[in-house]
Nucleic acid binder design. Structure first.
Lengths: 195, 195, 195, 195
DNA sequence: CATGAATGAGTGTTCATTCAT
DNA sequence: TATGAATGAACACTCATTCAT
């Protein structure tokens, strides 16, 4: 079954969704079509499972990061969050893009909502434990951070920016989040003055 | 030809890309398939033109906004930029999503790059004219603002957030951009303190 | 479309239903599969239409026979009815059998009921006009005659009886019907004594 | 093996031949496909055996009836024959119809011929022993009776006639056979006058 | 001897595209 | 130039059958 997933991703990357046929997936995975259909009742089910697997793994990583950073300062939290998400995207940037393309034939809203819910909960819990937080409306701030970070990273990768620009962008994104938190209620200890 | 575009969007919204056939588009548009093929040599060409039209119109609006805001303060610029993009997305949120789904069958990287280039140029020129700018690395800041704003807005709409959350988010996004600019080198005039 | 019907019958006769594929039908008919599907939305629709055509034609013939024999004696009526049905079966005995085999993939009860209703009505009207009828329960007699004649003829052909046996059978069937009518209330004119 | 037969009939009745797969038969029978293939080398073999079993049992019953009525009057013989066949059909009318549908995938002419031969022999022997027979051409009469009775009964059940009509029909069929025999050479004892 | 995962040829069906009218 | 019937390659999916365990 992992072979099937792997084959699917490879074909998606090589030829795109329109040329992704069950027969070719099976062939590349080294199994017969029949076997593929024993694991997945539809082509859609395969695509869905692939997305699920990816999003679950990503959520796992984000949850782990959040859990590992309870109680630290907001700055460190944001650094860690961006680092984790950025790394996940960078490591398999191609896979990520391949999966985005998959969404057309899918009703994966449930998947995305589940993912978002897990991430929201994890980041919210982390932020709530921050050692230097004094402000209010944590939920709004959490929503903003998550949406901005994820949206920005995705956009950055979709635009095919050159690595240098990507680096710059990441750096600026960090600073932006810090500036935002400073202005939004972080306790202004001396270390943070100047964002 | 406009009828064809309109029919395409309607079908895309109603049934999704997988059920978008040239025959049905022609039918809905009130022409024959043959005629459709007179205008567009491929199905892809139709989809490509549709995206092009949409992105061109969007770029037009952004350029207009930028042009109209040369010389004002950064804060006003950012407000205008977010306002414009947000409005464009909101007005035809469904169409936007329909078109995103269209991308699978397309090699529309060129389209996106053209769009990005136009927007980058327009926003950069606008920012460069800001009355209250003192910092450096304008290009980096421009890239960051554009990527963050567009990525965030897209993400917000894709997540199907409730209107209240969307409003909150927009408000926070604004504040985030302001905080970022303040920290990045905006001339600290009295009016902006506390951004 | 007639070519498609003809091709279907030929293939049915040559290879049986299990090997009747839409592709082969189209091939044999000299059209493309696509064209076949323009005429018939399903394989089932093709089979259904084929049966419909056959049963309609058969009902037409039986109705014509009945109409042509209003007012004559019962004996002549029966002769004509058996003659017509027998001839229809004999003429295209193979087609008939081919179509029977078709029924598996079909919900053709409606078809059969329509056919039966038409035949029942036609024969009933004919019998009611008989010059020599004195008995009662015409409906029961009609039902019996129709069921016996059609059931017997079908059975005879399905059993693959040799032509000689078939002839004998037909002769006996006639006599049987006459004897039945004599006993059931036919006016006993001298001509009919001894059935 | 009986479980397999039973499962086959159940599935045939529930879903029809097109949805009858070896896997489902095995499942329903509580065995594995492998085991099913130990008993029957093909799917066809299973269907063939099923028909064989059914026809053998039916022939058994008819033979028993015939044997039990040697030496009695023709009228009683006919009554018994119709009774037996009618009962067999009525008892498992659904099974009967299920099996008819099975024939498409089968070359069961041999089966039918064997059945017919057994029945013909049994009824012929019975008729030959009739206490009141004086006519000739017993073979022709036998063929006629068997074909008419079996054809009629089958037709009656296939037409889905309401129970009342079925009863009427059966009654008329009896009278028809009697009238036929009377006219064909039965010794005219007083008891039989008036058919 | 029983199992049931694996096989893959074969099926019904769709749809982008063409071209005679 | 507009039409839409015809095309046929290509696809998702099924299921009788096999064979390693």
């Amino acid at each position: 079954m992992d072979a099937i997933f792997e084959a699917t991703i490879q074909l998606l990357l090589a030829d795109g969704l329109p040329r992704l046929t069950t027969t070719r997936v099976a062939e590349r995975a080294g199994v017969s079509v029949g076997t593929l259909y024993q694991y997945f009742p539809h082509k859609q089910a395969l695509l869905y499972a692939l997305n699920e697997r990816y999003l679950d793994a990503l959520a796992d990583r984000i949850e782990a990061t959040c859990l590992a950073h309870h109680g630290v300062s907001l700055r460190v939290m944001i650094d860690a969050l961006i680092e984790t998400y950025w790394k996940a995207k960078t490591e398999r940037a191609d896979v990520t893009r391949a999966l985005y393309r998959t969404a057309v034939e899918l009703d994966n809203e449930a998947l995305i909502e589940d993912f978002a819910a897990r991430v929201d909960a994890a980041t919210l819990a982390m932020l709530a434990s921050a050692s230097d937080w004094t402000g209010q409306d944590l939920a709004g701030i959490n929503l903003t951070l998550v949406t901005v970070i994820f949206g920005t990273v995705r956009n950055a990768f979709e635009r095919n920016l050159p690595p240098a620009a990507i680096e710059t962008l990441r750096d600026h994104l960090l600073r932006m989040c810090h500036a935002y938190l400073s202005s939004a209620g972080k306790r202004h200890g001396p270390a943070d003055v100047g964002g």
